[in-house]
Amino acid sequence: MMIEDTGGDDELLAIVPSPAASAPGLPAHLQDLTDRARGYVEAASSTNTRRAYAADWKHFSAWCRRSNLAPLPPDPHIVGLYITACASGTAERGMNLNTVSTIERRLAAIGWNCAQRGTPLDRKNRAIATVLAGIRNKHAAPPRQKEALLPEDLIAMLETLDRGTLRGLRNRAMLLIGFAGGLRRSEITGLDLGRDETEDGRGWVEIFDKGMLVTLRGKTGWREVEIGRGSSDATCPVAAVEAWIKFAKLAKGPLFRRVTGRGKDVGPDRLNDQEVARLVKKTALAAGIRGDLPEIERGLKFAGHSLRAGLASSAEVDERYVQKQLGHASAEMTRRYQRRRDRFRVNLTKAAGL
């Protein structure tokens, strides 16, 4: 079976088996299996990953065309020149220098696309590895982490929402469940009301007397997140979700949906995960969080991960429980999310006698 590139320069790249590329006279039942294989290939990675890899492959292919070079079969020397151009700002019009993380992602995308075509790229070749090591040494910068939103910040953000509207109820539930569950933005918008209710769902919720159980499908398999009820209905994530479900009159399907009809109706469509980032940014600015900074800089401080980092930074419990809630494989990864919790808690200067 051949590999077909079904996406053009202006479409998402999809490297999937194609019935049209199969051998002549292929039995109908095998063609059906080919269609199923296409679906499994697409399910192997998230939509965001496929979109990013498609954009990076398009970027690399465009650079090759302008340089009169062929992107395939992959030549380590050409790829080495490409990442050099990215680092020096000559890979595209406008002279935009790419960050080290962007270059590493572009390189991963090139490797993935080449592998899908049966022509793997040797990333350990010194024409790539040595150049990349030099780029890291010269251009690497400390990671820019999003600001962690602590409980007092979240409460101030909730006060900016109108509790008397469907949109306000929905946004309130999204902020609270995102914070209390330590959820990623795609995990928030990927939730359904029940199990196996949609094809694009990433999990579902179950509500009990003591709290809510969120079952999620992640990169490494399924995991469960327990969200207990809050000390009051005003800050309880479970009560917020219950109110949204009740007044939105939801019975099944996506949990968080678009509000239409001038805010009076709830549509069937699932929210895009970018809406979570926009919501966090908008409410953080409206609440005056980090008012000591200029507004433009404040806007860059907050995103969907601010909720996740906020839980890790504020939950005064054993670290292993935070690690489990966030679904991290290592405690070290969890510590990266604990932005402010342990800062200066231990003073080694005084402990040393100074």
Rank of each mutant, 00 (worst) to 15 (best):
M1C: 02
M2C: 05
G7D: 00
A14K: 07
I15T: 07
P17C: 02
S18N: 10
S18H: 04
S18A: 09
P19F: 13
A20T: 00
G25Y: 03
A28M: 10
T34D: 04
A43N: 13
A44N: 15
T47I: 03
N48V: 09
R51V: 06
Y53P: 05
D56K: 04
W57G: 00
K58A: 03
A62I: 01
C64E: 09
R65M: 12
R66A: 09
L69G: 01
P73E: 01
D75R: 14
H77L: 11
H77Q: 12
I78S: 04
I78L: 14
T84Y: 08
T90H: 06
T102I: 11
I103V: 05
E104T: 06
I110N: 04
N113W: 05
A115Y: 11
P120E: 09
L121G: 12
R123W: 00
K124W: 13
A127I: 02
I128G: 02
A133M: 05
I135Y: 11
R136H: 15
A140Q: 14
A140D: 14
A141M: 14
P142T: 15
P143M: 15
Q145A: 14
L150H: 08
E152C: 12
L154V: 15
A156Q: 08
E159F: 12
D162Q: 11
G164F: 07
G164I: 00
G168S: 08
L169Q: 15
R172F: 11
A173T: 06
F179K: 09
G182I: 00
R185H: 07
E187R: 06
G190H: 09
G190W: 01
R195S: 10
D196R: 11
E197L: 13
E197C: 13
E199H: 14
G201P: 00
V205Y: 03
F208N: 04
F208E: 08
G211V: 15
V214K: 03
V214A: 05
G218T: 09
G221V: 07
R223E: 13
V225L: 08
E226S: 08
G230W: 09
A239W: 06
A240Q: 06
A243C: 07
I245A: 03
A248D: 10
G253D: 07
L255I: 07
L255V: 07
R257E: 04
V259K: 13
T260Q: 14
R262Y: 15
G267L: 13
G267R: 11
P268K: 09
R270F: 03
E275R: 07
E275I: 01
E275W: 07
R278L: 13
K281H: 07
T283C: 02
L285N: 04
G288T: 01
I289A: 05
D292K: 00
R298E: 00
G310T: 04
A312D: 04
S313I: 03
S313D: 09
Q323D: 02
L326W: 00
G327H: 06
S330T: 08
E332F: 00
M333H: 02
M333F: 06
T334P: 02
R335A: 12
Y337L: 02
R339S: 09
R341C: 01
R343P: 08
R343L: 12
F344C: 13
F344M: 15
L348P: 00
A352E: 00
G353W: 03
